[in-house]
Amino acid sequence: MAQTFTPRGHGAAHPPTSLGLDMRKLGMWAFLGSESLFFATLITNFFVNRSSERADYCNGLTYADLAIGLTSVGAFILLMSSLTMVLALAALRDGNRRMYRTWIVSTALLGTSFLCIQIYEFTEFALHGKGMSSNNFGAAFFALTGFHGTHVLIGVIWLFSLLFLRVGHNVKRPLEYVVGGQAGLRTHREPTDGGAGIPVELCGLYWHFVDLVWVFIFTLIYLLPMDDPCGEAHEALSAVSHLTVL
């Protein structure tokens, strides 16, 4: 008869569910599901409110002001941070703590870089009098990107906190658990680190979700074409001109 078990450490304190899955992961996925509804509402808010009255729109933040070049760099940085995050988890599962710490620090630094870009972008807008209250477009834009930026900030703090936690210290080397006397027989496709990497995996799920949201924001807000009631030739020309910001 196949037997299952819960490893020591975090796993012992959080027994798996009747589905054979770690309840912390289930909880994180449920949380991310609720977060996706949050962001869906904000994205809708942006699309509904992005068209203000012409005079109001043209005096405030406009689509032409968005720095596509700079934001593309931000998108690239977030994508790379997702790679370093997943490499950190892989290193932990391999028992390579040195590389794990290196990748975690890299992820946190990439996240910080993204935040710096966003702060720079927001500051530039504010200095030109195109803040959140300038028009509906500005309000919806700052609400959405600011909410996402807050998530990135929380993620960066979480990542740095992992360095001070004794995460995965019981993973000395990669372990393969053999259940029921037959190699490879497991109740579900969970990692074979005995659950020690779960705190890192949870942080990773959150971080990838933040990256995923940016995938949507980048395309829907920055790249999708928009009518230009101010008569500015903003599409290709302004996008290229904003590359000079770099």
Partner: peptide, 20 residues
């Protein structure tokens, strides 16, 4: 799933073993 520790698992889990 039973909630035994890793130590229990290796010492008295019938037919259950841990290997690198």
């Amino acid at each position: 799933m039973s909630a035994g520790t890793e130590g229990e698992h290796t010492s008295r889990g019938a037919g259950v073993s841990r290997q690198p």
